[in-house]
Amino acid sequence: MDSVLARALIEDPTEDGRLPLFLLFLAFLATFLITRTITRLIRAGKGPFRDRVAGGVHIHHAIPGIVLTIAGAFTSVAVDGSSPGAEIAAVLIGIGASLVLDEFALLLRLQDVYWEREGQLSVQVVSLTIAGLGLMAIGIDPLSDHTLSVGHLVIAINLPFHVAGVLMCVAKGKYSTASVGAFIPPVAWIGAIRLARPHSAWAKRHYSSEKRERAADRAHRFDDRYGRWGLNIEDLVAGKPTASPAVSGQEPSDPKGAA
């Protein structure tokens, strides 16, 4: 496995047709970083950027993202893998998909939770996507590699458990754990099997009052020791959320996301 990864890192991505995928990965990552920088400048009232409003309607960046993703998909089919159309399509899809997934939580809830704690779900989804694209960009594609090795098989078997672990961490309100677990699978697995955060959707649906008390006690002890560190890392990436709950009339979500 180590030799496969080392060889992939030094190979030229243009030699085996991986250039479009490599460009898609770079476009996706760069767009996410630029988008988060711009939105945080808008929120702080700094720089030349402002929210896009047309006819009193706030145009979220997921809208141009959908347009670019569709345009890239159509272009990809039309050029049938030929250059430079394939590379152009890859960049369009990378930019568009990044814009859409950056507002994943907003689209899921149909509410503007971008700067709420619930809105940081978008960062977990983007992190998982970057991890997957990064593996494929350096040539680790266990689903289509004809020279399948033991290392590739391990990745193929691990992938469903990896995704399930990250999603379980999100359901249990462990957002920081999900972010780290997107890149380090064992972190997600451990977070998935441990007690949920007391105010998470998982705890509300599946825990008895006694188990929620246990979860609350454990979360309190964990946060006293590690919570601020994990929260600072997450806020550094996603931006510090507002103090008010995302949905009026509902119990505020747990302000921490590790454990």
Score class of each variant (00 low, 15 high):
residue 2 D to E: 12
residue 6 A to F: 09
residue 8 A to H: 13
residue 9 L to V: 09
residue 17 G to W: 01
residue 17 G to E: 07
residue 21 L to A: 00
residue 23 L to K: 13
residue 36 R to Y: 11
residue 38 I to D: 03
residue 44 A to S: 14
residue 46 K to D: 04
residue 57 V to A: 03
residue 59 I to K: 01
residue 61 H to C: 00
residue 61 H to Q: 05
residue 62 A to E: 06
residue 71 A to P: 00
residue 73 A to H: 10
residue 81 G to W: 08
residue 85 G to F: 03
residue 85 G to M: 05
residue 90 A to E: 02
residue 91 V to L: 00
residue 91 V to G: 02
residue 95 I to G: 01
residue 96 G to R: 02
residue 103 E to L: 02
residue 106 L to I: 05
residue 106 L to R: 14
residue 107 L to F: 07
residue 111 Q to M: 12
residue 111 Q to E: 13
residue 112 D to F: 02
residue 114 Y to N: 09
residue 115 W to C: 11
residue 117 R to P: 01
residue 118 E to V: 08
residue 121 L to K: 04
residue 125 V to A: 11
residue 127 S to G: 10
residue 130 I to R: 07
residue 130 I to C: 09
residue 134 G to A: 12
residue 138 I to K: 01
residue 141 D to M: 13
residue 142 P to A: 04
residue 143 L to C: 02
residue 147 T to S: 11
residue 150 V to W: 12
residue 160 P to F: 14
residue 160 P to V: 04
residue 161 F to E: 05
residue 163 V to G: 00
residue 165 G to H: 07
residue 167 L to G: 09
residue 168 M to K: 11
residue 168 M to I: 09
residue 175 Y to W: 04
residue 186 P to F: 06
residue 187 V to N: 06
residue 189 W to Q: 07
residue 196 A to M: 04
residue 199 H to F: 08
residue 204 K to I: 03
residue 206 H to P: 01
residue 210 E to V: 11
residue 215 A to T: 05
residue 223 D to C: 09
residue 223 D to F: 05
residue 227 G to M: 02
residue 233 I to S: 01
residue 238 A to S: 09
residue 240 K to H: 13
residue 243 A to C: 04
residue 243 A to N: 14
residue 247 V to M: 13
residue 253 S to P: 06
residue 257 G to W: 00
residue 259 A to W: 14
